[in-house]
Design a protein around this nucleic acid. Structure first.
Length: 573
DNA sequence: GCCGTTTTCGGCCCGACTGTTTTCAGTCG
């Protein structure tokens, strides 16, 4: 079993333990272990063999043994019986907003309800009110929750959540009661998938702000409406939470509501060990009623002996330890990028002409683009035949003669065919200055076949970059089965860079792999895979991925000028 | 279940909101 499968098994056990009313801290230990295993890069089999899991923080003797058993046998004997005793649809009920393990357990054990459908029926017939802890309002809330669950998946891509958040936030900033405000939560941490929008305001009149918030035109339904905290469902289908604090409390609250939860737990533990109590309202020494003063988040980190931790890093992946040792990376910034690789034109499935794409990139301050239209096999995108390539290269030459201080590099996104050969022969490939290789077909191959296919594809000496290494489409298509570890190792060996495809639908390479790739000596490029001129700005999303992955300027090839970039990649041939 | 520069036992982050409650449990983040 691989890391992901083991993590899922641990999550499942944690959920089962919740339903059986097990010690909450034990439940947390399993959730925590699942997260650790999920973010582990490298071969968990080796760690199991060498019995090194137990050395990791959060995994003790018992969990290490359990993980080993799951890794070897695919299951955990101790929990098989429990799993068999809980009907799978009972677990589904936990997905209903407002329904947690305690309620599910009661409904299942005392009322015999085994599925969301049964629960819905009983609520509609008002047969639940009267049970201890359940009333008419609870029935309404459960029905609303079921409706919400059916209408909305509850997961949204970062670009969609961000634009919904900005829309609400823009309106809010005009209110006279709002002193300052910010979008926090996983959007501020730039996670690729978002569950809800968190907004924080500093104000002296929280009730007034809450009234305005729940009455906003973007609001579809009010879920909660309190004096300092409210939750609504937006018409866009995204849940939006608002918290209000005072000006003095704001930096503490901003840190708290940015998360992640795991980062916060770590920070609070750190505060506690230094004799403080940390919450969203302040940092309190001993039993003090009055908080230490911090004008911003940086001051809060300083109080705890830490360097400022950028929001993207706050995932409890070693950032506080690094901050304590003044060893945080100097993260990549968008202005470090000099050029834009991987843009498409109307030669294939792009909307813009080559000149239009170049113009927009130039107006954004970039020095070059790498045009990379599809090769012939990608019929649906109108892939280029050799004659199209020759025509395109003439057009680029003519354009480059006219452009001053900007360059269009002749590139291609060539398909890796099912057997690992490339869609153009070496003669045509040699006519390009920059070759990006990609998978666009036969996604269903078994893992070892896919892995070998990709490795064979990138071993062609004309290939410079492997595009979107897993092929995932967020919330739409799973990654294809591939051993990314072997692929990254092969890319490093071959001197092939890995793409951080910045299209918000892909964000592939995933940030969780960036650190592994970097440690192995890989280089990355950040590109928008732009199919129209306005998509060039997607590179920002790729920069966020790189930042989440602890990457610095020196890790990214398109922080180089065009000449340096080409000199660098041409060393292969 | 984990963990230890106060601890190998007894802690484990902390608070808002809601609904069903006369003081609190459940849920959520």
């Amino acid at each position: 079993m691989d890391n992901h499968q083991i993590a899922r098994a641990l999550e499942e056990i944690a959920t089962l333990l919740e339903l059986t009313d097990e010690n909450a801290f034990k439940v947390r230990a399993y959730h925590n272990a699942a997260r650790i295993v999920e973010s582990l890069r490298g071969d968990i089999g080796e760690l199991i063999e060498r019995d090194e899991l137990v050395k990791m923080k959060g995994i003790g003797r018992a969990l290490a043994d359990h993980i080993a058993e799951i890794g070897r046998t695919g299951k955990l004997a101790e929990y098989e019986k429990m799993r068999a005793s809980v009907p799978p649809d009972v677990i589904q009920m936990l997905l209903i907003p407002g329904v947690g393990p305690k309620k599910v357990r009661y409904l299942w054990k005392k009322c015999g309800i085994k599925s969301i459908g049964e629960l819905e029926l009983l609520c509609q017939r008002h047969m639940l009110a009267g049970e201890p802890g359940f009333g008419a309002k609870t029935e309404e809330k459960i029905l609303a929750g079921i409706g919400m669950l059916r209408r909305f998946s509850g997961s949204h891509r970062l670009d969609e959540a961000l634009s919904a958040a900005l829309d609400v936030h823009k309106g809010m900033r005009r209110w006279p009661e709002v002193i300052r405000s910010e979008i926090g939560g996983s959007i501020r941490r730039r996670k690729e998938v978002i569950h809800d929008v968190d907004i924080l305001v500093a104000t002296e009149k929280p009730e007034k702000v809450m009234e305005r918030f729940v009455a906003m035109p973007q609001v579809q339904q009010v879920i909660q409406h309190g004096g300092t905290k409210s939750e609504v469902m937006l018409k866009s289908g995204i849940q939006c939470d608002l918290r209000a604090v005072s000006e003095e409390q704001y930096p503490f609250a901003l840190h708290y509501f940015t998360g992640s939860k795991e980062h916060n737990v770590d920070m609070r533990g750190r505060a506690k060990s230094k004799g403080y109590k940390l919450n969203e309202y302040g940092l309190f020494k001993g039993a003090a009623k009055k908080s230490a003063r911090c004008e911003d988040e940086a001051a809060l980190f300083r109080m705890l002996g830490l360097d400022f931790i950028p929001p993207e890093l706050r995932e409890n992946m070693g950032e506080t330890e690094a901050a304590a040792k003044h060893a945080l990376p100097k993260l990549l910034e968008t202005r470090d990028l000099r050029g834009v690789p991987h843009v498409h034109s109307n030669y294939t499935d792009g909307e813009g002409t080559i000149a239009e794409m170049a113009d927009v990139a130039r107006s954004l301050g970039y020095k070059y683009i790498v045009l990379a239209d599809h090769s012939q096999a990608v019929r649906i995108a109108g892939g280029m035949k050799p004659a199209d390539v020759r025509r395109q290269h003439k057009e680029i030459d003519a354009l480059n003669r006219k452009l001053k201080g900007f360059r269009v590099i002749k590139g291609v996104e060539v398909d890796i065919l099912a057997d690992g050969t490339l869609d153009f022969d070496d003669k045509i490939l040699s006519s390009f200055e920059f070759v990006i290789a990609a998978i666009h077909s036969h996604f269903g191959q078994p893992e070892d076949e896919m892995t070998q296919r990709i490795i064979r594809g990138i071993s062609n000496p004309f290939v410079n970059v492997l595009a979107h290494p897993t092929g995932r489409l967020l919330l739409a298509r799973e990654p294809y089965a591939v051993d990314l570890r072997l692929v990254i190792d092969a890319a490093v060996k071959q001197g092939v860079a890995l793409e951080i495809n910045s299209h918000p639908q892909r964000l592939d390479l995933d940030w969780r792999w960036c650190k592994y790739a970097k440690d192995k000596g890989a280089r990355m490029i950040i590109d928008p895979d732009a199919h129209s001129a306005d998509e060039i700005q997607y590179v920002e999303f790729g920069v966020w991925v790189a930042r989440k992955g602890w990457l610095e300027k020196g890790d990214i090839l398109n922080c180089l000028d065009a000449d340096q970039l080409l000199a660098r990649v041409n060393r292969r041939k």
